[in-house]
Structures are given as C-alpha cells and as structure tokens.
Design a protein around this nucleic acid. Structure first.
Length: 530
RNA sequence: GCGGGUGUAGCUCAGUGGUAGAGCGUCACGUUGCCAACGUGAAUGUCGUGGGUUCAAGUCCCAUCACCCGCUCCA
C-alpha cells in the first residue's frame, strides 16, 4: 500500500487534539526530534510497556524445551563508564568520519568519497566526457571550455571552474615535474579542486558542487555531556544509545545475585538517546526514545532454537495486542545486512501511513557471543558461565529482542486509527482494550431525574479498578464520539429504564451496538472483557 | 547541512499593504433524550520568533526556529 500522507496528518492532528502526543517545548517553538506524551498518550505508552513487562518478564510463554522461561529485570543508569561504549563498538561504529562541503553544506562519508565521485557525481561524469576517448588523456583547451560552460552549472564551486588558469597551471607543474608518472584520475581530480596549492595542499572536491571538502570529523551519534565540576576530556561521558549495554555490563552481577541458570533472559525498559542526522516521521525517529530490550543468554548449541522462539513470541505479542493485519511484516535480514558476528536477525516491521516501505519496530537478533566477549576483553573480567551439570564453561550466546516503545506506541495508534464517515464519530481509535488509556466511561443519559446519582455510583465502583471517566455534559452522541476518539472500548449509560429495572446499556466502541446488563454486573462485565 | 513547501484560535484552514476571520471543537444557559441534534451566548490570537521597509505589515524584505516532502544519514 502506498504512503498516505493525509491519513498521517489526521492521526497527528487527533493525537494533539486529544492529548496523546505534543511537540516538546512547543511554546518555545519546539525542538527537532523530541516529543512529549500527553495525558492519554502517557497512559497508552505505559500500558504498552506494562503489557510487555507482564508478558515477557513476569509471565513469559513456555520455552522451546517445554520448561518455564527464566526472566529477570534490571533498570540501569543512562550514563555509564565511557569504556562501555568502546567495548560495545558505539564509540567507533557510531562515528563514521564525515566530510562537509563548506560551500553547499553537503555531507559525505570519507570512505565513500572516491566511489561517489567515480559513480554518482554529475559534474565528474560530465568532465570525464571531455577526456580523449582512446587514451584517456585530457587537453587543456577542452577543460577550459568545460570550465566556462557546463562546469559553471554542474560544479560552481570547483577550483577549475572558478579559476581555471591557475588550477591548470598547478596541474601542468605536476606533469612537467614528473613526466614518467602521469597523475591518476584521483590525483587529477584533486588538482582540479585546488586553487592555492601551497596554502592548502591538494583538496578533495565535493561530489555535488565541486567545492573543497573540509577535514574528516566523526559524526557523533551519541550525545555527550560531562560529570563533575571540570568539563574536560577526562570528564566526558555519553548518554546511552541503547539500553542493552547496561544488561551486558551487569551480566556477572545478575548471575551472582539471582541464582539464575543459563538459559535465562534479562529485560530492561528505558530511555536511550541518539543524535540522529534527520529526525523524521513524527515520533518514529526521535533523538530521545524508549526501548524495551531483552538479552537472552543461552548455550550456542541451542541458540537458533531460542532465536526462533523469541522471534515468534515477539510477533505474536504484537498480533495479540491488535496488529493483526498485513501491515505487520516480519522480515529476515539478508546475509549482507547481518553484522559479522550475527547468525540471524528478523526485523519486525510495520507499514506506517507516512512511508511506502515497512519500518522497523523491533529487531530480534542472534548476536552470538559478541557482546559478552567484547566486555570480557575490554574489562578484563571473566564473562563465561559454568554449567554445573555438564561441567562446561563457556561465554553464552545472546538472543536480543530489542523493541522501540515509542515506535510500538505509534504503530498501535496508526493501526487503531479508523475512519468511518457513516458513523457519528467518523474518526476513532480501535485500540485493544488492554492498551486503551481509558477503559470505560459512565454517562447519565440526561443530567437530571436522579440519573446522575446512579451513574456516579457506578463510576466510583469502576474507577476503583480501572481508569474511567464520567461525563454528563452535552448530548449523548457527543459523549460517545469523544470516547471513540480516545479509544475507550466501553460506555455505560444510565437511562430512565435503569430506575425501573436496574439495567444500564453497554455500548461497544467498534460496533456502536448496545446491550443491557444489570448495573451490579458492570464491574464483572469489564473484568471479563479487559 | 542542502533544495522545495508550510507556519493565522484547541483542530482544519480563508485572509487583495488599511478594524483579526470561518467551520469544527471547548465552555455556559435553554430545549431534547441513545449516537459529534437544535437554539442563544461566551472564551480562546504577541498572525512561529526576532529585526527591517512603510504613515500603516498577517500581507513586502532579511534572519532564525519548527514541521512536511526530497537529498544526505540511519544500531
């Protein structure tokens, strides 16, 4: 299905209108890549995190070996010893050297520069046409002509275009000085990008505009800050880019304090931070986000079995909470995509209205023993596990189901969003009852004749157990519609008949159908349904 | 960071250099009594922000911030 920007806009409008999601610091003009959850949104997201914790940690399914799965939780600090990020690979892996063109602002990865110039630079492509076809040699008049013609348009900031005579003079010096070693294409390219050879040395051109690229500097995906009084290099620390490392770093502590035996899993829910180049698509790619991660430790011999287990458990979890349609699309990563240490990974993707392609909600990765081995190497601490039964000592293999809480929240909202022009409430949220921020509403049909007293009593009873709302204002239709937009699954209405036989109506959000039940059965009804 | 677009009430949006607008929503009162009903009212705006031009700026100019689309990037 193609992307549906108008649906996405309506979802964004509803989320703001009804208090699900706000832009962070909106009154100051907002801040790129950060979002707030309002009263309904925070309940929804909390319900999602609670459901995850309940279903994965407190009550996990039976394992592939037919036994109970052992799961424990941790809640680690966001700032850790910086050595953690050296061991995890984030300090280097998350900092690709980038070169910026000061002229046009284009960013290029250093290691991709020459390949880009050779294959996907429009001006370079055009310039190469000017070379003598057979020998590959160039002649100065043709280069001059190009510089004053096509070059003006294609590569306005290239030295050859801005100052052809000087640039070509440098090149001539090079050739005359070493006649037996003609410049390579790369060297030639550097020369025509250089105006002031003695001052700057050879320059590398921007693939887009030809301007001289700046020095390579790592793009830092991790946010930096400082601990303590002095803000110097020794005090520099990072906001974690994932919650997983807190689990790995505590592997020994958990083993030593909890009497767990491999196989077992450690779970964590928490904030993580990434300085994304381009935060985009509402809350999908935010710079501050929340993860729900499991690191499941097992013997390598059983690891594929456990990987399949977690893959299926996680897919089923999304489906059980309402993502039953075809928009939920698990996708196995190709061998090319897999990290070198990984044997398998399934991305659980969802087709959001803002995109043509499904986007990742969660990755279920087989990570081998990479992480624990890395920490063993860097910390010097033994990360192996001794199995008393088999007398085996080994570094466990890790299966990592890593889910985005905000992405899941957005997916559940998008999936629940339903338009039906035939209804009085043309837009509503078909949220799963477990996730709905408000579980039930209680209305008096009219705000008089003793009905409010009866309804309030029912409301108080319901509210002891679930988030609920009481509403006596305006027409009954508006009240139903408001609850539909909030995703409230059930509304109970006290009417004239209640005074006669003690029954109230229950209205179903999705069908708008009503049945009558005795008012004493309201709590029981909800307990069955929720 | 670049290019294009947008920014006016809670939401969706009109607005020709000359008094700040509509629909919906919200609130109050009345009426009605099971699906955003009807009537009468009300509140809500530094027109994204900051400069400039002008007798006069929502409107023109500059800068800046945010959002959307496309690049670039993306465990």
């Amino acid at each position: 299905m193609a992307k549906d920007a108008s649906t996405m806009e309506k979802i964004v409008a509803l989320c703001k209108r009804r208090g699900f999601i706000f832009q962070s610091s909106e009154i100051y003009g907002g801040i790129n890549g950060f979002w707030d959850y309002g009263p309904l949104g925070c309940e929804l997201k909390r319900n999602i995190k609670d459901a995850w914790w309940n279903d994965m940690v407190l009550h996990p399914p039976i394992g592939p070996d037919g036994r109970e799965v052992t799961m424990v939780g941790v809640d680690c600090s966001i700032i850790m010893n910086p050595k953690v990020w050296e061991a995890s690979g984030h300090a280097t892996g998350f900092a690709d050297p980038m070169r910026k063109c000061p002229a046009c602002g284009h960013f290029v990865r250093s290691d991709q520069l020459w390949e880009m110039l050779a294959t996907s630079s429009k001006w370079m492509d055009s310039l190469i046409q000017e070379f003598t076809p057979v020998t590959g040699e160039y002649d100065t008049p043709r280069l001059l002509k190009w510089a004053k013609g096509k070059g003006q348009r294609l590569a306005p900031n290239l030295a050859l275009v801005r100052n052809p005579e000087v640039t070509l003079a440098w090149l001539a010096t090079r050739i005359n000085g070493q006649p037996d070693a003609p410049p390579t294409l790369q060297e030639f390219t550097s020369y025509i990008a250089t105006e002031q050879l003695h001052a700057t040395g050879l320059q590398d051109p921007c693939p887009r505009c030809g301007g001289p690229l700046g020095e390579a500097s790592p793009f830092k995906l991790m946010f930096e800050t400082y601990t303590g009084v002095e803000q110097n290099a020794d005090a520099k620390v990072f906001l974690r880019p994932e919650t997983a490392q807190g689990i790995f770093a505590n592997f020994r502590n958990v083993c030593d304090s909890t009497r767990v035996k491999v196989p077992f899993g450690v779970a964590q829910v928490g904030k993580a931070f990434r300085n994304e180049v381009t935060p985009r698509n509402y809350t999908f790619r935010s710079r501050e986000f929340e993860q729900m991660e499991i690191e499941f430790f097992c013997h390598d011999r059983d690891s594929m079995k456990w990987w399949e287990f977690w893959r299926d458990v996680r897919i089923n979890w999304y489906q059980a909470l309402g993502l039953t349609g075809e928009k939920l699309r698990p996708r196995n990563q190709t061998d090319k995509e897999l990290a070198h240490y990984s044997k398998a990974c399934t991305d659980i993707e969802y087709l959001f209205p803002f995109s043509d392609e499904p986007q990742e909600l969660e990755g279920v990765a087989h990570r081998g023993c990479f992480d624990l081995t890395q920490h063993q190497t860097h910390s010097g601490k033994d990360m192996s596990y001794f199995d008393d039964e088999t007398k085996e000592k080994y570094v466990p293999t890790v299966i990592e189901p890593s889910a985005g809480a905000d992405r899941a929240t957005l997916a559940f909202i998008c999936d629940a969003y339903t338009e039906d022009p035939a209804r009085a409430s043309p837009e509503f949220l078909k949220l799963h009852p477990r996730l709905a921020p408000i579980k039930a509403a209680v209305f008096p049909l009219v705000n008089k004749d003793g009905l409010p007293e009866i309804a309030e009593a029912i409301f108080r009873d319901v509210r002891k157990r679930w988030p609920a709302q009481y509403d006596a204002k305006q027409s009954i239709g508006k009240r139903y519609a408001r609850m539909d937009e909030a995703g409230t699954p059930f509304c109970f209405t006290v009417d004239g008949q209640t005074k006669e036989d003690g029954t109230v109506t229950v209205r179903d959000r999705d069908t708008a159908e009503q049945v009558r039940i005795d008012k004493s059965r309201v709590v029981e009804f909800l307990r069955e349904k929720l």
